[in-house]
Amino acid sequence: MTLFRLAGDLSHVLAILLLLYKIWTTKSAAGISGKTQLMFCMVYVTRYLDLFTSFISVYNSTMKVLFISASVATVYLIYFKFKATYDGNHDTFRMEFVIVPALILALIWNYAFTFFEISWAFSIFLEAVAILPQLFMVTKTGEAENITSHYLFALGSYRALYILNWIDRYYFEGHWDPIAVTAGIVQTVLYGDFFYLYFTRVIKGRKLQVLP
């Protein structure tokens, strides 16, 4: 466990808790893409199928349970409890445009042609693009609440920190995970525009507005 990976996981947990906090305290899913959260649910379920079969550490299992349960809770809040506040008209990204390619790629590029490994690769590829509906929604609505910006910053930082972790592991352990690294770079690059807006606006106390 490198420091970067721990920092990345903690940033990920922070993002998940920030989102739950925002929806629960404002009793509103306004500005939040339900589609992104649905896909994150798929990411965790398809990635952690080994939750009951392979034990890595208490930390690993605890985080898996946390990610799955928190993402299910988030989807529940958006589509059921605070359904009336869900802004479906601005959450128009076609999920199949990312789910199908991720599945096809997972069938082609995986570490073994087994259900588990194909499911794992699908999860990695899907996670890389799962944020797209949320980023599209921010551009469509033209702005994002501050806490939503902080949520996105923490979420984008998590995989950026993992990239540092992968560099660290390659340098010290001499091996790397091509699928995870490739997808992780794509995932982090997709936040590029948001990171720019975040650092030029939100940090200076201004609302995150996508310049028209």
């Binding site: 990976r5 990920h12 080994d50 890595i56 690993n60 570490y111 073994a112 091996h175 995970d177 995870a180």
Partner: peptide, 10 residues
């Protein structure tokens, strides 16, 4: 570990 199959990361 044989690298890949031990998916030890989240």
């Amino acid at each position: 570990s044989d690298g890949h199959n031990a998916h030890d990361e989240l």
